[in-house]
Design a protein around this nucleic acid. Sequence first.
DNA 1: TCTACCCGCGCG
DNA 2: AAAGCGCGCGGGTAGA
Length: 555
Amino acid sequence: MYELVAPAPDGGVFLQRLGRAGYPTSDAEALDPTDLAVAIRGIEERDRPRWVWQRTTDWYPALLAAGVEVDRCHDLSLSAAILAHSAYTQDSGYTPGVPAAGAVDADHVLARVPPPPHQGTLFEHDAPAGPGPDVLASELRDQLGAVARSPQAKRLTLLLAAESAGSLIAAEIQHAGVPWDAAAHNALLTDRLGPRPTGFARPSLLEAKAGELRTLLGAPMLNPDSPQELMRALHRAGIEARSTRAWELRQYTHPAIAPLLEYKKMARLLSANGWAWLDAWVADGRFRPEYVVGGVVTGRWASRGGGAMQIPADVRSAARALPGHRLVVADASQLEPRVLAALAGDEAMAAASRDRDLYAGIAAAGFGGDRAQAKVALLGAIYGATTGESGRLMPQLTRLYPRAVALVEQAARDGERGRTVTTHLGRSTPPPSERWSASQRTTTAEEQRRADAIARDRGRFTRNFVVQGTAAEWAECWMADLRGRLRRLRAEGLTAELVYFLHDEVVVHAEEAAAEACATAVRDAARAAGRLLFPGAPVEFPLSVAVVESYDQAK
DNA sequence: TCTACCCGCGCG
DNA sequence: AAAGCGCGCGGGTAGA
């Protein structure tokens, strides 16, 4: 059973009950938006419907702010974006959104009416503008119909459910926020950079490092933040680097190199996660980044603001559990190679996956026990490396795991030829770029060379897409299942909430007494995800789980 | 002076 | 150590 939420004229809200096929079973009921949370809580407790709305982000943040959680939903925009490209629905006749001439992009079609106000304003003045209940119900029917007609209806159903659950989880994680110890963060900054400066001056330790650098390079006016100036100063000092990248600088021996690398490290800390970051993103002891579900072509989540998915290892020491609480940090070990083994049905690689350390298993099977070699070879296969060590190791990897290698090779060939490739559950690549298409129309040999390079680029993208995208599906299923388990723990009165997600890693903030139960839940959820995606496959997805006080203590 | 892009580096 | 994939962000710089 579905319950539709849609904007009504004059800032009101419509609620409408829909049957299993998406047809209304009642008239749309108009509500004052201030009553929405109460109404939704009541319906939720009574019926546990699947809430249908254009976008979770339009409605759910405000509901959470009002203390209302929902069990499940169907996010029409996220689903439309998947179905619009999915190879599993290409013959279904589905076109996203309201019937409209030239409709191409699902999200734009559904959202071409005035955008809703930003989260948090829902109960203040006006409800989100957008298509009314008729349009949304019709879109839901189109989507359900396309899925039902698909030869892969089960997988698509799972994908849309996982993506919609993901949208709920993203809003909930944002609502909760990562517990952040601003004092600890400030102490770290002060220790590394010196006390917080007033105005725009460099912190004292950073300025001192710059001075050291100027002396050692004999460049008294040098601004080390300017790549151009730095380059000139390096050349004058006899360092013939052709870029200012840290890894390249490391190859030169000169007394200025070490302090320069230290300067870069310090400057990076200041600009990316310094006091300004703390001011902008941490409030009330929580870091609240914005997650963008489906924000990456492969289906991974992206984030906006605060660099939520790039928190450096050392800064993670400021992510601290509250007193009497713990962080349960879990990450899926070598997720992508394991996903590849399952995708390809490669029995030999699956056997290696029974080893807790997949790379060690592969090393033992065919790389003379050299784990580093096994890892380089496998990652090279997934990313499309052709040169260097991983290129040389490919033949050996192919002998060991012909099916797994064949799968990524096929994905690469398809991409080079402009075909789309598809994840296990049904997310397909967008059609080739204009750049690719244009490159097909070549006349000269030089153009052909460039066309080949562009094709190889796309091949590496599609090669990686099937693996990265399917791994993202595993992770979303993992979290969706975990969410249910944590909700049950909370129903017992315990504190246990998801507060962070990073591709193949989750962090749960839990009261001490619930930490072990959370660790168990997170492991059970991983097993459930494996069974959901790959029923009966002999591939294992082990986690490393740590119960810690601060995030940096994990692994 | 403003904008668009590149560079470099953080994460998986 | 980087390379091969996917991102976001801040600072500098080139060009309007």
